[in-house]
Computed example of a mutant assay.
Amino acid sequence: MKTIVPLVSALLISGCSMPSAGAGNEMRAETSGVLHAGAQNSRKSRPENGRHGGRSEQRSRHTDASRCDAIHAGGTEPKVVDARLSRLTASLCFRAFAVLHSGVSRTPIYVSELLTRASVDEARILITRDNRFHPEPRLAVTERSELADYRGSGYDRGHMAPSGDMGDPDDDFDSFSLANIVPQDAQLNRHGWAELEGYVRDLAESLGTVYVVTGPAFLGTDLDRLHGRVLVPSHVWKAAYVPGQGAGAWIVTNDEKQQWETISIADLTTRVGIDPFPTLDRASKTRVPAFPTFER
């Protein structure tokens, strides 16, 4: 039997107090008005109609959002607590992950996964990766990103649900949907962020089950758009919940500085406007895990 002490120790709690309101406000600053402008207008994704060829027809089963209930901790999807983030959103259910997509930023707002020991073992066996990035056919053309948006941008196409988590070729293809992608600093994507993704897989392999929610954050007033279309996040974040052990999150600046923090779920919610685990009890949400960070 594998020892799990080193990874369990990473979930030891270093404190139980609520984060101060000031800390969240300083991080959040003022929104740009680009992503958050306008009234809430959320909707579910539209079913596919076969216009996109055989693979899209084969994957039409992914449009049933109820299929993704098991992916979410407690069977409850992450909660958007900042209603401004809900404008022009679409829920997309893939077999291995669930996406809330924004037609304003043309990126995901969050992506949920359930990693298990078995799923990680399968992913380690799948050696060949698809690498065919593609626009998401279930999204309106006016609200999705395209391959041309990223060309010459200087940013990597950064996965929120990583290809490395996928143990099935169809699921791996799905992970290259641009609905699962954000503009990410190249050095961050290829080094610290990749190390974080591997660390979370190690958690699942050793502890058995990890619920994971990953997303971009659009904080501050000076945000760029790729070709005037795809909003570049100021930060990216990842939250992890291990039943019976605890929960916590990482957040890192999406630039060459790569400023990492490990924070509580409550602090993450205050900063980015998303509660990744709504059914988690208050005490668990306010504890700060002793997670490692991945500075270069």
Rank of each mutant, 00 (worst) to 15 (best):
C68F: 03
L85I: 01
R46W: 06
G74I: 07
R46P: 01
G33S: 08
H72Q: 02
Q58F: 14
K44F: 04
N49M: 09
T63A: 13
R84T: 07
S56P: 02
Q40L: 04
C93D: 03
N41P: 00
A90K: 06
G38K: 10
R67Q: 07
S91V: 12
D82R: 01
Q40V: 09
D64S: 11
V81G: 01
N49W: 09
S66I: 08
C93F: 03
R84C: 01
F97N: 01
R61Q: 14
S91F: 15
V34E: 15
S60A: 11
L85H: 02
I71S: 03
A90S: 11
V80Q: 03
A98D: 10
K79T: 06
G50F: 09
S66P: 00
L35C: 11
E77Y: 02
K44V: 04
S66E: 10
S91E: 13
V80Y: 03
A37H: 14
R67I: 04
R28T: 08
C93P: 04
G33F: 08
S32C: 15
L88G: 00
A29S: 14
A96Q: 09
K79I: 01
G33I: 05
K79H: 06
S42N: 10
R46C: 04
S66N: 09
H52Y: 13
R46N: 08
R67T: 08
G54M: 15
C93M: 03
P78A: 01
E30W: 10
L85V: 01
A73M: 08
A29I: 10
V80R: 05
A98G: 04
T89L: 00
H62L: 10
L35K: 09
E30C: 09
H36V: 12
L35P: 06
R55Q: 15
V80P: 04
N49L: 11
R46S: 11
S60E: 10
H62Q: 14
T76M: 11
L92C: 05
A70G: 13
T89W: 00
R51L: 13
T89D: 00
S32N: 13
G54S: 15
S42W: 13
D64H: 12
L88D: 03
A96V: 03
S86V: 02
S32F: 12
S42A: 13
C93K: 02
G54E: 15
G54A: 15
D69N: 13
R51S: 15
S60C: 05
V80C: 04
Q58P: 01
R95D: 15
P47A: 07
S45V: 10
T63D: 09
V80E: 02
L92F: 06
T76E: 14
P47M: 05
G75V: 05
E77S: 06
G38P: 06
G38N: 09
A65S: 06
A65L: 06
G74C: 05
G74R: 07
D69G: 07
R51Q: 15
A98H: 09
S91W: 14
L85G: 00
Q58L: 14
G74Q: 05
P78F: 00
S45D: 06
G53Y: 06
H36I: 09
R61L: 13
S56Y: 05
S45Y: 03
A83V: 13
Q58V: 11
R59M: 11
R61S: 15
G33K: 04
A37S: 14
D64Y: 12
H36P: 09
